[in-house]
Design a protein around this nucleic acid. Structure first.
Lengths: 249, 249
DNA sequence: ACAAAAGTGTTCTGGTTACACCCATGG
DNA sequence: CCATGGGTGTAACCAGAACACTTTTGT
């Protein structure tokens, strides 16, 4: 986007991606730091006229993470008129975050389609900043820098959605390395939910989903008793994802 | 929209509303029949530049139903490039569904934000057709006429969403008259879910939600034992709606 | 009186909660 | 050898599923 060929883009429509990762028992989000100013933004972008919005979201994330097989899900579309803030856009020009020529495009009324993504933290070697940013970093959800416009709100809604999804779907395949221990999986759940769970009940419940395969190998080198390593059985995992976990009516 | 002042509209963005009603034990949807052609469409429209998308959806429905206090919820945004179909739009011009001047606007690449609405069937006295339609009618979800573009898909996704929402939220306040019997509420649930439920278990479950108030009056005039009339306790209903019903983690 | 639908209760089962206990490992 | 965390078991409890019986109404 060193150049902005607005003829190729769908007017009024933007996408924003909330990319979740998990590292050192913290839920992280991938954020871009804008140039010349202490303000951060969600990765995202505009929608080319001939490209599906889902594809465009994938492309945006591939540019930032280098990964091309990211779990992505649309969760909400943000269409308040207050998202459009001329003063904010003028400021972006003043601070040379965006060139002046881009002002008219940026100053449109935008509707933004929110996606959330789940990625394995360690697979993102070096997050890549975009044309209007000077850094791309993982930030802890509990300790966010100042975010532009309504991006903090978008992030919150994504997090809420993720919490709810835990009741309907298994989670972990996209956030954990191939092999992991049950306590690590539990820590992921606890981190997303923001509360402690009972060890024994957690184990029983996730085992009952029938999506975990024990590899009879153990994580070595750590203190205390070496925990068993598990993998997801991908076929069952996908099936559980489609069918859903909860009972209901 | 007898006139289409495109300067006032947000390009590329449309909204489509799936309006559910309940009548004679059938789940109904409000549909518009296009002029001069046997093709139906969801109510919806375009988004004015200075109007929130939620407000715009409300306005669209007020125009069709005359109601201004409709329960509305965004459920998905449809952004496939295949939604844009030039042949289809040419056909609309040929058949004089839309005037030729409108063709360029209609033939844009559109992203459509889907909303579903729940309304009390009997409160919609006479559904009102719009500028490109000659009729506005309730159609049974199980017996749909031919729908334009991807509108059947949108409708299906809305119905799927509604089914899932039944597990998290109480439903009925917006679909039933003020007073109703438990069997009527059950019939609503059965209709949405498309399956039979056990009378006794259903009653116990909905009563446990603590959102129903018994009026000690009975529905008279019907055959067999006169059932008791209930009302929703709105405060509890709203609380249940926000807090959610299922337990989960 | 009888058919049909409303209203109430009971059992059985499976999942959730809240625990106690033993095992392995690094320090 | 002991503190710490991993792994397993179990009793109490509650919600959902399946089902039988009584009550009330119109015909």
């Amino acid at each position: 986007m060193a150049n902005l060929n607005t003829d190729l883009l769908t007017p009024s429509v933007a996408i924003d991606c909330v990319v979740f990762g998990f590292h050192e028992n913290e839920l992280k989000v991938l954020l871009l730091k804008l140039k010349n100013i202490d303000l951060w933004a969600l990765p995202g972008g505009f929608v080319h006229k001939h490209v599906d919005i889902e594809t465009e979201a994938h492309n945006a994330l591939e540019l930032r993470t280098g990964l091309d097989n990211i779990f992505l899900k649309q969760f909400h579309t943000f269409g308040s008129i207050e998202r459009n803030d001329t003063d904010h856009n003028k400021m972006l020009v003043d601070k040379k975050v965006i060139p002046e020529e881009w002002f008219p495009w940026f100053n449109q009324r935008f509707i933004s389609i929110g996606f959330y993504a789940l990625v394995e933290y360690s697979q993102v070697k070096e997050p890549i900043p975009g044309p209007i940013s000077e850094a791309c970093e993982w930030c802890s959800v509990n300790d966010l820098p100042p975010l532009m416009l309504d991006h903090e709100h978008i992030l919150t809604v994504a997090h809420e959605t993720l919490k709810k999804e835990l009741n309907n779907q298994p989670i972990g395949l996209n956030l954990l390395p191939k092999r992991f221990t049950i306590p690590e999986l539990q820590s992921l759940y606890e981190t997303i939910l923001g509360k402690k769970l009972d060890r024994r009940n957690f184990r029983r419940k996730v085992m009952s989903f029938g999506i975990l395969v024990c590899t009879n190998e153990r994580r070595t080198g750590v203190a205390h008793k070496a925990p068993l390593l598990y993998e997801f059985d991908e076929a069952s995992y996908i099936k559980a994802n489609e069918a859903g976990l909860s009972s209901g009516w």
